[in-house]
Design a protein around this nucleic acid. Structure first.
Length: 580
RNA sequence: CGGGGUAUAGCGCAGUCUGGUAGCGCGCUUGGUUUGGGACCAAGAUGUCGGGAGUUCGAAUCUCUCUACCCCGACCA
């Protein structure tokens, strides 16, 4: 590609509304342009990389026997009503009507459509397992789109769905897909980790997310310092502190703590560590009334954790009696169980209580006295107040012992670029997707599903590969492999000839070249800066000065220094240096 | 959805308080000079000042209203 024929849309200044580096660089390099909130046009430069990511994903999917399909982006409401998701899915589901007033949605995912396809086209266990995938535009009407294509409303996802006659077969495909995902992210040149993930409302034996490690990530990942263990913090188990609970040394006392309801303030006032203060969180319970609708709030439930810890809402909402999703109780509800907002403690509460493992290990702790402006000090479980049911309620923190039994927890930020699930029969049952088994009996198919956020991968790769001058593409997904800068092409016939020949030779060798043939009005500095911003990994500068000695200049985008290379050797050198 | 903010040329911004014919830098066009790191000189083009209504002799500026976008939070397979 010649610069004079290419839509170059580089910007010198950082656009005002881009916060994360990938978004800034994608705009500045001219990869994308915004159309509206969460909607982006892929420019020629960006599309080249996007397509490369897609193709790597395709190759690895095909390699494990998955077959590509392409399903409509617009999906009929009827299918979503069959699975109940038309009503469950919130505002994220973009619902539309056609001219006949029939309801449709723009697909945020395709379980319904693929399961419908399977029920209509699969009839025998002999056809299983079957793994189908597509690379398709998805739409989720995010409450707050941000970070460019990282959390856009319209995005490109590879979604695969597998169908099986039994669990064992699903397990096998799941493992193959896990391996395929590792191959994909390795080929993309990313620093990533598969991590254990919450199986959510779907359930199933296991689920893994694939995270690209980056500071700007929106998820916290817990790692073991001594093993391969990695889990989303949402899921990572906080294990009980080692050893016996320390013995009580203080006596129980009620102390005045006027206007100090926050943990920080109480700890400061009483001169103790926040870890010695018991935090009480009152949440809504599930209604047990006869006529209650599902999801109605009932008697509040009190959760106790250590003052220095954070409640894990995912863990909390799985507790018996706790309303899911977690909702905090109102002041009135807290009063109804004998508590006072800001001063809730375990003594004399008439509510179901849970205590976190670490909080259960406390001795001589400070807690609310259930009276305004009063706290208890020297509180001890069992001596002063019964120990409630002990549960894992909190987020793990750095330094916690790892739940795998080896090492301690370290926490890093990650960008979720892939997620694999064992769906089981949730959708196949709802949509009645059955095949005949060996005995001629109907059998509901077992399913798996496997997503990769293709457009998000592009942003994630930039988050991990950039410097002060721009993007540092790995060769595998670079929009061009080589950039050629011919110096003074307009004056030097020799430079022109050598540059054109190299351009032709590289192209013939299957190497993608960007030659900056812009005229003398575009200074070399601008050409260098543009190439660096665009992240082209290999650069060749051809000049009269070099050619006098039969040399051209080569520089890798990531290298500190330039190299002088004999002109006749440059093609071979590039072929050797480019790793695809 | 709650809180905060912004909207002026392709991009980044000033001008708004205190009303008086629309400005700067970058980019763009033309000509010339320059030529290995975002060049210089000269001449240009580009704006319904987010939309609507109002106040006023006169509104980018004041008032009301709508919209879009951004940030924090809540939400999120």
């Amino acid at each position: 590609m010649r610069a004079t024929q290419f839509l170059i849309a580089t910007e010198k200044e950082t656009p005002a509304d881009a916060v994360v580096i990938s978004h800034q660089l994608m705009l500045r390099s001219g990869m994308i342009r915004k159309l509206a909130a969460g909607l982006y046009t892929w420019m020629p430069l960006g599309l080249r990389t996007l397509r490369k990511v897609e193709n790597i994903v395709r190759e690895e999917m095909n390699r494990v026997g998955a077959q590509e399909v392409l399903m409509p982006m617009v999906q009929p409401a009827e299918l979503w009503e069959e699975t109940g998701r038309w009503f469950q899915y919130g505002g994220e589901l973009m619902r539309i009507k056609d001219r006949h007033n029939r309801e449709f949605c723009i697909g945020p995912t395709a379980e319904e459509v693929i399961t419908d396809l399977a029920r209509n086209n699969l009839s025998s266990y002999k056809q299983l397992p079957m793994n189908l995938y597509q690379v398709q535009t998805k739409f989720r009407d995010e409450t707050r789109p941000r970070f460019g294509v990282m959390r856009a409303r319209e995005f490109i996802m590879k979604d695969a769905y597998s169908f099986h006659a039994n669990e064992e077969c699903l397990q096998k495909t799941y493992e193959q897909m896990h391996a395929a995902y590792c191959n994909i992210f390795n080929r993309l040149g990313l620093d990533f980790r598969p991590v254990l993930a919450d199986t959510g409302s779907i359930g199933g034996a296991s689920s893994h997310e694939f995270h690209v490690l980056a500071e700007s990530g929106e998820d916290d990942i817990a790692f073991s310092s001594a093993s391969d263990y990695a889990a989303n913090v949402e899921l990572a188990e906080a294990i009980a502190p080692a050893g016996e609970r320390p013995t009580a040394t203080q006596t129980l006392e009620k102390v005045a703590t006027p206007n100090t309801s926050s943990i920080e303030d109480v700890a400061q006032l009483l001169n103790v560590a926040t870890s010695q203060v018991l935090k009480a969180i009152v949440v809504r319970g599930i209604s047990e009334a006869e006529d209650a609708e599902e999801g109605d709030a009932g008697e509040p439930v009190v959760l106790f954790i250590r003052g220095d810890h954070e409640l894990n809402e995912i863990k909390a909402e799985k507790l018996p009696g706790v309303l899911s999703p977690v909702q905090f109780a109102s002041e009135e509800e807290i009063q109804s169980i004998g508590g006072v907002t800001g001063y809730v403690g375990p003594q004399n509460l008439s509510a179901r209580c849970y205590v976190d493992r670490s909080a259960a290990h406390l001795a001589d702790f400070v807690c609310g006295a259930n009276e305004k402006d009063m706290h208890m000090t020297g509180s001890n479980w069992e001596r002063d107040v019964a120990l409630p049911e002990v549960a894992d309620l909190r987020n793990v923190v750095a330094g916690d012992p790892s739940p795998c039994g080896q090492g301690t927890i370290d926490i890093k930020r990650g960008i979720e670029v892939g997620h694999i699930f064992q769906l089981g029969t949730k959708y196949s049952e709802a949509l009645n997707a059955k095949v005949l088994d060996e005995n001629g009996k109907d059998r509901v198919m077992t399913m798996g599903c496997y997503g990769i956020g293709v457009s998000r991968v592009v942003a994630a790769a930039i988050e991990q590969n950039n410097d002060e001058n721009g993007i540092l593409w790995p060769d595998a997904i670079a929009p061009f492999h080589v950039g050629i800068v011919p110096m003074n092409m307009h004056k030097s016939e020799e430079v022109r000839e050598v540059a054109e020949k190299l351009y032709a030779d590289l192209t013939a060798a299957g190497i993608e070249v960007y030659m900056d043939d812009r005229d003398k009005k575009t200074s070399p500095g601008v050409k260098f800066a543009d190439m660096e911003l665009m992240g082209i990994p290999h650069r060749v500068v051809i000049s009269d000065r070099g050619l006098k000695e039969g040399k051209v200049e080569y520089k890798a985008r990531r290298a500190e220094d330039k190299e002088e290379i004999a002109a006749e050797d440059i093609l071979a050198l590039l072929q050797e240096r480019i790793s695809l």
